[in-house]
């Protein structure tokens, strides 16, 4: 089975710098792969484990060339990594991202299964998987909480609001998996050493014959939300008596 797992490289918002006017600078933030995309890679790796091939696929700006990050992905049971790189793709919306991903999947040729994460760590639109499938004209399911290989495709479990569906999916297909489907592996030293030998391929938009994506909506600047100032009385363990007194006052319990 030839599998593609889609992952997005995002800024680590924990390093976010907020200016007094609430505008934010993301450039100084580190890079990482979205947590939920690791579940997609893991799902692909498990399916590919007996004789399959797994390509990790990302589209983005220069940030997707980061070698440390690539090594991290390549140490997660994948056969190789493919990136579509263009500066415009850093801020691409779901529609444009899906257009480019669909073209890349087409170019990879002979793909049986595309796995997406539940949502990207920055947009969390939960849209790209559905839109890749629609563009490729492939069957699609989201919220996949279990995958089994069957004689003529896959049998999957889909956990929705209030109901669990069991479905037979013919291949090729596109699936978006839940974060509860699996626990992403922690790469071993051997995995990490092996990662350096795995192939990584970069394509440009021109390589795929895709035009520069035109944003479907005009987006304004990113700002930090207004945050509320709190008292912030933090006690060390040695002062736990003070802490307990204050807490009892808050919850309206008299001192014991």
């Amino acid at each position: 089975m030839k599998i593609v797992a889609c992952f997005k490289v995002v800024r680590d918002e924990r390093d976010l710098v907020v200016a007094p006017d609430r505008t934010v600078t993301l450039d100084a933030c580190g890079l990482r792969v979205g947590d939920y995309d690791l579940n997609a890679i893991e799902a692909g790796a498990q399916l590919a484990a007996d004789g399959g091939e797994l390509v990790a696929l990302t589209v983005g700006g220069e940030e997707v060339r980061d070698s440390k990050l690539r090594k991290g992905v390549l140490s997660r049971g994948v056969s190789g990594l493919t990136a579509v790189v263009d500066p415009s793709l850093t801020t691409a919306d779901a529609g444009a991202t899906a257009e480019v991903l669909a073209a890349a999947v087409g170019r990879l040729d002979g793909v049986d299964l595309v796995v997406c994460g539940e949502g990207s760590a920055d947009r969390y639109a939960q849209q790209v998987g559905a839109q890749v499938a629609a563009r490729l004209g492939l069957p699609y399911l989201n919220e996949i909480s279990k995958i089994e290989v069957s004689a003529d495709g896959l049998v999957v479990e889909r956990t929705l609001d209030g109901v669990v569906e069991t479905l037979a999916v013919p291949l090729p297909a596109v699936l978006s998996v839940t974060s509860g489907l699996n626990s992403p592996r922690i790469p071993t030293m051997k995995d990490i050493l092996g990662a350096g030998k795995k192939p990584a391929t970069d394509w440009s938009l021109a390589d795929l014959g895709v035009a520069l994506p035109v944003p479907a909506a005009a987006a304004g600047p990113e700002r930090a939300p207004e945050s509320r100032q709190r008292a912030g009385a933090v006690y060390e363990a040695a002062q736990q008596q003070e802490f307990f007194d204050a807490l009892r006052r808050l919850i309206g319990k008299d001192a014991k």
């Binding site: 934010v24 920055d122 909506a217 005009a218 304004g220 990113e222 930090a224």
Partner: peptide, 10 residues
């Protein structure tokens, strides 16, 4: 964005 770290109007 980022689950609430930033917001953006379009």
């Amino acid at each position: 964005r980022y689950g609430g770290a930033t917001e953006q109007a379009s």
